[in-house]
Amino acid sequence: MAGILIYSDKENLALELLTAARIIGQELNLEVKAVTINNDALATALAGAGADVYGVNNDNVIPADVGAVASTLEQAAAKLDTKIVLLASDRRGKELAGRLAQNMGAGCLTDVTDIHINDDRIKCQRNALGGATVATQYITTDKQVIAVRPRTFAAAAGGEGKISLFNIEARPTKIKLLEVKTRSSEVVDIEETEVLVVVGQGLNSEGNLAEVEKLAKALGGEVACSKPVATDKKWLAEERIIGLSGKKCKPELAIILGISGQVQFTVGIRDAKVIVSVNTDENAPINRMADYILPADLHEVIEEMNKALG
C-alpha cells in the first residue's frame, strides 16, 4: 500500500507529524511510515506512539549536511513507496524541504499552519504577503513535500509500533562540523502562556525590562517581544519573539507595549483572545487589531499597573 512518510530530528515535532500523517492517511488511504537517522531514542519514541519506524544508521549522514539528509529521505521515500513526505517547519525541516522536494521532483509547501482534506487534496494554509493574508494552497504533483509548523497538531501518544533497520547509500560528507553551541535556553514557552506582556522598540532601555517582568509576573504571564528587541537590541532571548519568524501565540490576554504592528509581528498574536495596545501614537497600526487601546507612554503605564496590581 502506498504511504506517507514523516521525518523530523526532534521528538516532539516528529510525534506531531505522526498525528498529522494519520489524519491524512486515514482520508487518503495511505500507510504512515516514519524515518529516523542515527537516532535510536527517537525511533523508540515513535514506535512507542504506534509508528512503523525505519531506522537509518549511517555515519556519513549528519544533520548539518542538508544534502545528505535529503538524499537519505529521497531514497527512503522511493523504497517505501511514500509519495507524500511530511516534515516539521522548524529551521532544519524548512531548509530540508526545498532540497528534498527538488530531489523528488515534488511540489512543496512550507510553514503550513493547518491541513484539511477536501476533494482528495491535501489543502494547506500558510501565511502569505508577509503575513498580511492567509492562503489556502494545495500541491498538484504526484509527489508532495509538506513542512508543518510546530504545534499545528497534538503529539501522538500510545500504541505499539515496530522498528526496522533500513539501509541507504551515502557518500562521506563534505561539511565539517567545527563546533556546536547550545543556547542557554531559559526554558520559557511563550506559546503555552495564558498572559503575555509583549514589548517592542518603544521600550526605552534594557533597564526598563525589570518593570516589564514584574508586570508579567503580577499577571501570571511571561514577557515576549517584537523581533528587533531580541535580534537588534539583544535585550531578550530569540525564543521570546512573536511573529512570522518567531512564535505564533494564542494567549487569553496580550498586552502589547510600544509595538507598531507590522504584519510580520501581528501574524504571531492575532489569535489572542483579548489584545491591549499601549502606544504613544494613536494611529499606530497595532491599534486596529486591539480590543483596548490606551494611548499613553508605556513606561508610565507599566509603573501604574504594577502599583495597582502589586
Binding site: 498580511a132 493574508t133 494545495y138 498538484t140
Partner: peptide, 10 residues
C-alpha cells in the same frame, strides 16, 4: 505544482 485556492486577510 502548487495551486492557490484563496488568499485572504484573516
Amino acid at each position: 505544482p502548487v495551486v492557490t485556492e484563496s488568499n485572504l486577510a484573516p
